[in-house]
Design a protein around this nucleic acid. Structure first.
Lengths: 319, 319
DNA sequence: CCAGTTATAGTCCACTTGATTATAAGATGT
DNA sequence: ACATCTTATAATCAAGTGGACTATAACTGG
């Protein structure tokens, strides 16, 4: 163990280093009710399963488990994060979880009825700012976060906690930042304001806590997915993975708003989308929208290859 | 296997699902010679080792291996990517690699002489555009990429290959995008223009290929790290992890330039850094720079907590 | 004291983007 | 038929961002 070891040679391969690898999927879609994700066990868990020898790759293993458990075939997939589960350490065994974000359309359904879609904001009611700041932030979270901050032993910690709470939840006149979804969940976890923090804990006071909870750290993974997606739609054209083949610009805007949890200025959104040439008119129109019939657009696929990183800006920069 | 399975319960834990997990580190620093990274085996491999039961977490396991193999203690760490190694599938065993990016200073040395720093651009000579586009791009890569593109069977593939080459390597008047480091390496791999692509291959023609190669897919992981870092310095204040406690603005600029592989307009860089209040003057000056003594700055640490996502823009946006 | 080097301040301008207003085209109800 | 509602689409204004450039200051070494 004292000599530098090159990977792939001279390594001790034995039982002691064995781990089990779990694949976990956050499968996101957007429907009229808003952004949602695939769940199993009545909304308590994300689709997941062990990585097995039969799987050709991590991604194909993930696709297999999701399709088996929910009947949903997956399109776009990206890796979220890999973590070792501290709570599930066996004698000679550990579990590593590799989480993924998948984007799809709800219509991409098999006929299987096993899948069930759940709304993001049932699990994160403080994340939806489309109708202004939700009351839960100031009425419930703020006082309890302050209480938590003031419960710290030393003044420095109290100050730090209040500052972190203010940054994450846009208190004291700060601007709301929708990309901080993960930080907010972690803060609430640290303050024991979510159910997950109380499991097996000593806390006798099980006061009502905001948002639906999930098993293990699945809600944390969901928060990671939300934060990643909210960030990514600003610089990569991933929104279109969630859209039907034909759509109006307002439908596209509503989808982005659903994901980011905030409203967008309509003319600016149209201008940005059109001048980037991300979409092209089909000529067809739809009258299903109520007022004047809207142009139907489709995603301009060739652009996807032309702009590997740049482009796809969305007017979500400032508050 | 037909019923939905909840994670953590009812799972079959058996030999067939066992994997070995490898931790691989790209440890980056910047010195006068430019950006560099820690290697073992005379620059042929990245520090790495298996994730073991004794490790408290993935990160601590990584730190342990890097320190053991190179004597270098690590500061900032972030996860890069997790992949299953297709080439190393045993009868009942597979290997999963979890790669990390670490930022440090070369001075953070132990006295151990086992570590050896290698320069990025010895492995990716086409990535350094600080003195203009390196000749290797037009003189070597371009003709061989065109040759590769024209070797495709059908016209559509030929067109696609030429377009991808042009986008990645800024041909046909396109602008250079330093963040495409990974795409460039993958393109060269696909075109069999890097050594790694020829291992165990049929290719009899071992023409000289650009850049030093590494074992397994370590150079690919390095490319991933470079791309990630070049992207990240634009929106998070991670550059300061690579700086000494006190530095001049020009030193900071040179570091950013070394990482991004391109030059930055000096007044604009200063303006952006100063108006973001990322640094503060110490009052001290240094005359080591040659001309007029420069102010010494230090990183304004409190800002790091205040701006969890925003800020830290760098003038690298356009060409 | 002059040339060379680096530091630092300021200006100009093109482009981006947030905000607002105006107009067009359909549906619906009376 | 007409008013009114809803949504679509176009155009404009103003503030801010960021790239390029110039000018001046302060030091070192012949």
């Amino acid at each position: 163990m004292d000599q530098p070891k090159g990977p792939g040679k001279g390594r001790t391969i034995g039982k002691t280093n064995n781990v089990n690898a779990d694949l976990i999927a956050v499968v996101v879609a957007v429907n009229d009710a808003g952004p949602c994700f695939l769940t199993i066990e009545q909304g308590a868990a994300l689709p997941s399963g062990p990585f097995e020898l039969a799987h050709r790759s991590l991604q194909s293993g993930l696709r297999a488990w999701v399709e088996l458990q929910t009947g949903q075939p997956l399109g776009y997939i990206e890796q979220l994060y890999t973590f070792a589960d501290r709570d599930r350490v066996g004698a000679n065994q550990r579990v590593i979880s590799i989480s993924y974000l998948a984007l799809t359309r709800e219509e991409d359904a098999g006929t299987s009825g096993r899948r069930s879609w759940a709304s993001w904001y049932d699990y994160f009611p403080w994340e939806d700012h489309r109708s202004g700041r939700p009351p839960i932030v100031l009425e419930e979270l703020r006082p309890r976060l302050i209480e938590w901050a003031d419960g710290a032993d030393d003044g420095a910690t109290r100050f730090d906690r209040r500052r972190r709470a203010a940054v994450a939840f846009a208190l004291d006149g700060r601007a709301w930042n929708e990309e901080l979804a993960l930080q907010r969940y972690e803060l609430l976890y640290e303050a024991a304001l979510v159910d997950e923090a109380k499991r097996g804990g000593v806390s006798a006071i099980l006061a009502s806590v905001p948002g639906r909870s999930m098993i293990a750290d699945h809600r944390r993974i969901l928060a990671t997915a939300i934060a990643r997606l909210r960030s990514k739609i600003k610089y990569r054209p991933v929104v279109f993975e969630l859209m039907p083949p034909l759509f109006t610009l307002l439908q596209l805007q509503r989808t982005v708003e659903a994901l980011s949890g905030r409203l967008i200025n309509k003319p600016n959104f149209r201008r940005l989308i059109e001048q980037q040439e991300l979409v092209e008119k089909t000529g067809a129109t739809t009258a299903e929208t109520g007022g004047r019939p809207a142009q139907l657009y489709r995603f301009h696929h060739t652009i996807l290859d032309e702009r590997p990183v740049a482009g796809t800006k969305l007017p979500l920069a400032r508050a």
